[in-house]
């Protein structure tokens, strides 16, 4: 269980550019939850994810994962159990290294004490090939291709596979399908569901697609001004429509939500 207690983050404090990105936010995430997060730009969604994954230290507050206080752990330590994907498909992979080498790096999270001078074993190659087949993109036959030559959709699929190769305790998805064409986005979304359901991975997903926000997962959070303003789960969330969510938005986030990146399409 992830327990976020009263975290705050202020950028550029004491200057004209001061920005309260997180304002005493608290959140409890149960194991196996799939939470969708919505909110206008600047609501603090990405800042929340950065705080959880350890990219920066929150100014105050605690982050506790499965009883362990991880507030001060650096990001590379947390990445053992917190997986993350970004909107930009270029962020998650090393372009000049092959598919196989990228997967091998992601697989480093698996073995705590593996010999640093050992190479990729045949058994691992077989495992990578098998997992790549799941993507159904023919990547299993291109294991020695540099990742830089793949399309955005393929790279994002590979990133998803890397983030879940060793199932993390928590997977953070920051608009991970937003930069892809509709077909690729759907494919990645289906893969995300498939993989997280199989592993019962706890998942937080930022999306600007309100249809996704109400149809995927079991809980929806709405953020505004660096805090959670609406938290829907269980019965409240069942039968929630896009219109309901829009109305909630107008009520809580006011004009802030007036922005063209919100997709209303069916």
């Amino acid at each position: 269980m992830l327990d976020i207690q009263n975290i705050s983050k202020i950028f550029n404090p004491g200057t004209v550019n001061e920005k309260v990105a997180l304002n005493g936010l608290s959140l409890k995430v149960e194991d196996g939850d799939f939470i969708t997060v919505v909110g206008s730009n600047g609501a603090g969604k990405s800042t929340l994810f950065n705080a959880i994954s350890g990219v920066f230290l929150a100014d105050s507050g605690k982050i506790i994962l499965d009883g362990e206080n991880i507030t001060f752990q650096p990001d590379y330590v947390r990445s053992r159990y917190i997986g993350r994907m970004f909107q930009d498909p270029l962020k998650g992979t090393a372009p000049h290294m092959t598919i196989e080498e990228n997967l091998a790096l992601a697989y480093l999270r698996a073995e705590k004490n593996s010999n640093p001078f050992s190479r990729i074993t045949r058994k691992e190659k077989e495992l990578f090939r098998e997992r790549l087949k799941m993507l159904d993109m023919g990547l299993e036959d291109r294991m020695n291709t540099p990742v830089g030559t793949l399309s955005g959709g393929q790279r994002q699929a590979l990133t998803l596979l890397m983030a879940t190769l060793v199932p993390p305790k928590i997977l953070l998805l920051d608009e991970h399908t937003a930069a892809l064409d509709p077909q690729a986005a759907e494919k990645i979304m289906n893969l995300t569901r498939e993989i997280t359901e199989k592993n019962h991975t706890t998942c937080l997903m930022v999306t600007h697609n309100l249809k996704q926000a109400v149809s995927i997962g079991n809980r929806t959070l709405m953020m505004a001004g660096g805090d959670i303003v609406v938290d829907l789960k269980g019965k409240e969330r069942d039968g929630l429509t896009i219109q309901d969510l829009m109305n909630l938005f107008k009520e809580h986030a006011g004009k802030e939500f007036d922005n063209d990146r919100i997709l209303l399409s069916e």
């Binding site: 590379y76 990445s79 270029l90 998650g92 372009p95 000049h96």
Partner: peptide
Amino acid sequence: DNRDMVSASSI
């Protein structure tokens, strides 16, 4: 090659 990705791989 990609420092962001490295810290995300527990390196």
